[in-house]
Lab assay of single mutants.
Amino acid sequence: MQIFVKTATGKTITLEVEPSDTIENVKAKIQDKEGIPPDQQRLAFAGKQLEDGRTLSDYNIQKESTLHLALR
């Protein structure tokens, strides 16, 4: 499925993911596309910060959802 990640600079990244993917996997995909190390990424959805060990389906993130990326 496709999801979107909006960066602090307003850029939107499109990612191909599975509901079973962990947040860690998603951060690795962002690193592949943007070169941002996962340990510098903070992802949020619906106002909640997402934890590495959880999956997209844990957070009820569905196709075409938009996550927000902040850098630490």
Results as ranks from 00 to 15, higher is better:
1 M>T: 03
1 M>Q: 04
1 M>S: 03
3 I>D: 00
3 I>K: 00
3 I>H: 00
3 I>C: 02
5 V>A: 04
5 V>H: 00
7 T>H: 12
7 T>P: 06
8 A>D: 10
9 T>N: 15
10 G>S: 07
11 K>S: 10
11 K>H: 14
11 K>E: 08
13 I>S: 02
13 I>K: 02
13 I>Y: 06
14 T>K: 07
14 T>E: 11
14 T>W: 06
16 E>H: 14
16 E>I: 12
17 V>E: 01
17 V>C: 04
18 E>A: 14
18 E>M: 15
18 E>T: 14
18 E>C: 04
19 P>K: 08
19 P>H: 06
19 P>S: 10
19 P>I: 07
20 S>R: 10
20 S>V: 10
20 S>H: 14
21 D>I: 06
22 T>R: 13
22 T>W: 07
22 T>P: 10
22 T>M: 08
23 I>V: 08
24 E>Y: 13
24 E>D: 08
24 E>I: 14
25 N>G: 10
25 N>F: 10
25 N>R: 11
26 V>I: 14
26 V>F: 02
27 K>Q: 02
28 A>F: 14
28 A>P: 01
28 A>I: 14
29 K>R: 08
29 K>E: 04
30 I>V: 05
30 I>M: 03
30 I>Y: 03
31 Q>H: 15
31 Q>T: 11
31 Q>K: 11
31 Q>I: 02
31 Q>Y: 15
31 Q>R: 11
32 D>W: 12
32 D>V: 08
32 D>E: 11
32 D>L: 12
33 K>G: 06
33 K>Q: 12
33 K>Y: 12
34 E>V: 10
35 G>S: 07
35 G>R: 07
35 G>A: 06
36 I>E: 02
36 I>G: 02
36 I>D: 03
37 P>T: 09
37 P>S: 14
37 P>I: 06
38 P>W: 11
38 P>E: 06
38 P>K: 15
39 D>G: 09
40 Q>D: 10
41 Q>P: 01
41 Q>D: 01
42 R>S: 14
43 L>R: 00
43 L>Q: 00
43 L>E: 00
45 F>I: 06
45 F>K: 03
48 K>P: 02
48 K>V: 14
48 K>E: 12
49 Q>I: 09
50 L>Q: 01
51 E>M: 11
51 E>N: 09
52 D>V: 06
52 D>G: 07
53 G>P: 09
53 G>I: 08
53 G>R: 12
54 R>F: 11
54 R>I: 07
55 T>K: 11
55 T>A: 06
56 L>G: 00
56 L>F: 03
56 L>W: 01
57 S>M: 09
58 D>S: 13
58 D>A: 07
58 D>H: 14
59 Y>T: 02
59 Y>G: 01
59 Y>L: 05
60 N>C: 04
61 I>W: 01
61 I>V: 09
62 Q>T: 13
64 E>A: 10
64 E>Q: 10
65 S>I: 04
65 S>V: 06
65 S>H: 08
65 S>W: 04
66 T>Q: 05
66 T>Y: 08
66 T>L: 10
67 L>F: 03
67 L>N: 01
67 L>A: 01
68 H>S: 08
68 H>Q: 09
69 L>V: 05
69 L>G: 02
69 L>F: 03
70 A>V: 14
70 A>P: 02
70 A>Y: 09
71 L>I: 11
71 L>H: 08
72 R>E: 12
72 R>W: 13
72 R>N: 09
